[in-house]
Every structure is written in C-alpha cells, then in structure tokens.
Design a protein around this nucleic acid. Structure first.
Lengths: 256, 256
DNA sequence: CAATACATTTCGCTC
DNA sequence: GAGCGAAGTGTATTG
C-alpha cells in the first residue's frame, strides 16, 4: 500500500523515482509536458503538450490527453520501460520485439509523479456477452425457433468454428451465428461462409447455382442459416434475404 | 500548469478536490482501493482491489489495473462525472445517455489524487495508415499492376464506397480493396461485395452463375477484384482464388 | 441519429 | 507464433 509521490521533481529526482518504481513493479502515473514519438507497426509524432503517462509493470505504456477513451499513443504489454535524462529532458522509452516497436516520451517538465504497487482483484464478472446469448439459447432452444435442436457448439468446419450447429423441426441442418448486438453485412458474410462450408462437407449443391435463375429452392435437403442478433441493418437484411437466411431477434440477456 | 496533489486524503478531502478538479476541467489521476460496477450495454462487477482511476474533462473514465493496455472498466467520452461520500466510501460515478450506461467506482481508501489542467498538443501525425497506402498507389499505379489506371477513390456503390476504382491495361473495370496489414477472409468478403455491386450496376452477369461448373470465365467483359495488402492468410488466398480475385503484396510505406 | 469501415485496434483461444 | 473472431470494442466519416 506504499504510494510514492513527488511534486515538480527535477529530472534527476524523477529518474530515481521511476527506476525505483520499475524495480518495485509499481503502477506509475506521470503528469508533465512532453513530446511523443512512436515507431513500429506505424510511425507517429506528437508535439509538445501536457499529458498523463501511465506505465504498467507488465510493460504497457499509455499516453493520455484530456480527451478520448483511447490513449493518443501507447505501447502494448510485454514492452520494457527505460528512463534516462538526455539533453536536459527526462526520456521514458518503452520497447518490444516482434513486432519491433518503440515509444519515446520526452519530458521538458515533470509536474507530478506517483507510483503504487497494485495487486489482486482482476476477477471481472461480465454479463451480456455473446457467450451469455449462447447459454440462453442452449437452455431454451425454442427462442430460436419451435423445434430447433442444438447439437454442437463451436462445431469445426473448413471455414472455422460455427457458433451453434443443430437441426430444425424437419431435421434440416441449421447453422446459427450469434451476435450480442445489432449487426451489419459482415455478419451475414460470416454466416454464409459457414453454411457454404457445411454444404460442401455434406455434398449439398449450393441452391444459388444449379438452377438457372431461381433464388431459392425448397424441394431438396439443404443447410439453413440463422442469424441471431438483437437487430440487423437494412443492408444486412438484404443480404440475408439473398442468401435465404433467417434472422431471429434476441438479446444476450432477457429484457426486464 | 497548476497541479493539485493530495496524499492519503480523507474521503471528504478527496471529494472536495475532485469537485474542484471537475470544475476546473482538470485531468484526474486517482490511486486507491475500490470496487467497480458497470451497467449499460452489458453489466459487470469487479471486486475490491487497488487500481488507478483516470477521469477526463470530456467525460471519459478509465479504471486501470496493473495489467493490460485496456482499462478493466471504463466510460466513454460524453459522460458526466459525479463524486459523493456514501456509506463511508468515496463514490465516483460516470453516467451517459443513449445508450444509458453507468460506471460506479467505490473507494474504501484513496491513496493518491492528482489533477492537472491539460491543454493543447493533440496534433498527432501518423504514417503507415491505409490512407498512406492509397496515396502511394495513386502516385505510382504500376505498383498495383502494369497499366493500371485509378479513376476514382471512395467510389460509391450499393455495397458502400470502394477504396479505389479503376481500369486495367485492357480497360477492364477494377475494384481495389486496400488493407494496411496482413488480412484474413473477411477482407475478401468485403472486396467481393463491392465487385458484386459493380457487376450488378454494369449489368454484368456473375461469372460464378451462368455457366454450369466453370469457376472462371475470361471471354466476356467482367469486373476484376484486386486486394492490395502486405500479405494474406491461407484461407483468404483460397477465397481469393475461388472468386478469381488477385492479391498484390504492398506495404503502406516503402520498406527501407 | 444510423451505418459503415478503419485501427499501431486489443484480447483470448486454438492449432 | 499464426490465425481467427469477439469486444461494453473506439473512432471518424458520411448520409
């Protein structure tokens, strides 16, 4: 529970505190005026300004301005922090390999530096995820459709694992794709890949080919695709119709 | 440049400092032992532990543990921060509407609170984005293919805007999809949507239909699809081949 | 406001 | 490590 805190330190003082904090494995919060340079997957430069630098013992580094949920610059976990005084400025550098990337923060002024050992309590319980939606359906398959019978989750296919594989009341194979929120055309493409893969696997001809123009065919065994999501965009609905797939409106958690 | 900083404040003191900081529009950094509850697009609970809470004047709130680039909990910009002392604890709550969401952080102990006015210097210059890749191609179209001629960027279609629309040496229409890094099957699906939309628009029959089995047809005007990306996954390459599309290996920035 | 696609996405899981 | 897909994704842009 030891918190280190220095106000308007000299660069030397800040350097000592930083090195001690790295040594102890502390979480560091540093206010100051700085420039930021990044080079790696991309490259960026940020002119002088007041910012908050957060340094984590796992190697993550975050540069925050007064706006936005996202840091303006950062370095992912697994990096290594190094501090030094160069050309009269405090330089904090985080580096990692594969991919090679470097974040360099140069402080002309350090206003405030705090560091604390942070332990325990990372056990977040989250509700309303796609997994919750799956659980809900497995407990009550009729929410998808009368007579729907789930057979397998994460069923492998040549196009990747499908969320739920099952059969409808007629025994026709059904691929169910789950989304926890409103979806666009990309989700339909995903479902289409799984359905296509399953058709191929089962030796079922694609109904879009075969006939010369008929957009749908119902007179032969087929594979059905069902997209379960709270709602879909217009373009997604079009593409669902094109493919002959169904949409079932369902939330990950029952609405109150 | 005024930095406020209090060490091990009482809840009352912390509350005053927080309210002043909100008033001034400061960026706040707060170390302490807390529980976190979120309710909105999903719902989550986090047990007691030491964490760093960052509060921004634009309404963003970030709860950081000692690990990860991502905050363990957060609230997006546009929220409103409120602080109070309830049941012997300092409660910080950030709320926003549409969607309705609330983040509640309850501190049993506040170890360190700092706040600073943070201004200016949000002008980040970034290189290596998809836009850089586009610029590079427009300056040297032959990087895509000998004789390639770009005609339009962000060309509208019923499936959305395509990155580059142009023509090859034979005058055949070409849709180019750009990706700044290695891509999977999703990017092929995106390209396919644009090509399909353009074929429909130009009244060109899809070569996959029409013939009974021939996977490709080269004896009639068609629309070509080219995926420009540093590299593609195997599955993406398969799907490219299925569709008769090409891949051109190109980075957003020239490699040194 | 909805819709769409990019992002230094990050993250977790499987192979 | 690569590949694949989810995420309370965030973010900008366009209609």
């Amino acid at each position: 529970m030891t918190v280190t805190s220095v106000h308007d330190p000299s660069h030397r003082e800040a350097l000592w505190e930083l090195e001690d904090a790295f040594e102890r494995g502390d979480l560091v919060s540093l206010f100051g005026r700085c420039t930021v340079a990044y080079e790696g997957r991309a490259a960026s430069d940020l002119g002088a300004g007041d910012r908050l630098l957060v340094l984590k013992p796992d190697g993550a580094a975050l540069v925050h301005t007064d706006e936005g949920r996202q840091p303006v610059n950062w370095q992912p976990p697994g990096s290594e922090h190094h501090a030094a005084v160069r050309e009269g400025r405090l330089r904090v550098r985080s580096t990692r390999n594969s991919p090679d990337e470097t974040l360099t923060v140069r402080f002309s002024d350090v206003h405030q530096l705090s560091a604390m050992a942070v332990t325990g309590g990372r056990d977040l319980t989250l509700h309303g995820s796609e997994e919750d939606l799956r659980t809900r359906i497995l407990e009550r398959p009729d929410l998808v459709e009368q007579g729907f019978e789930p057979r397998e989750t994460e069923r492998p296919s040549s196009a990747g694992p499908m969320d739920i594989f099952g059969a409808d009341a007629d025994g026709t194979p059904v691929v169910v794709e789950l989304k926890r929120r409103r979806v666009g055309p990309d989700a339909v493409g995903q479902l289409a890949r799984y359905v296509r893969a399953l058709r191929e696997e089962l030796g079922i001809e694609d109904p879009a080919e075969g006939g010369e123009a008929g957009p749908k065919r119902t007179d032969s065994p087929d594979v059905r695709g069902i997209l379960v999501a709270p709602s879909v965009t217009d373009r997604a609905a079009e593409r669902l119709a094109d493919r002959g797939f169904d949409h079932v409106a369902l939330d990950p958690t029952p609405e109150e």
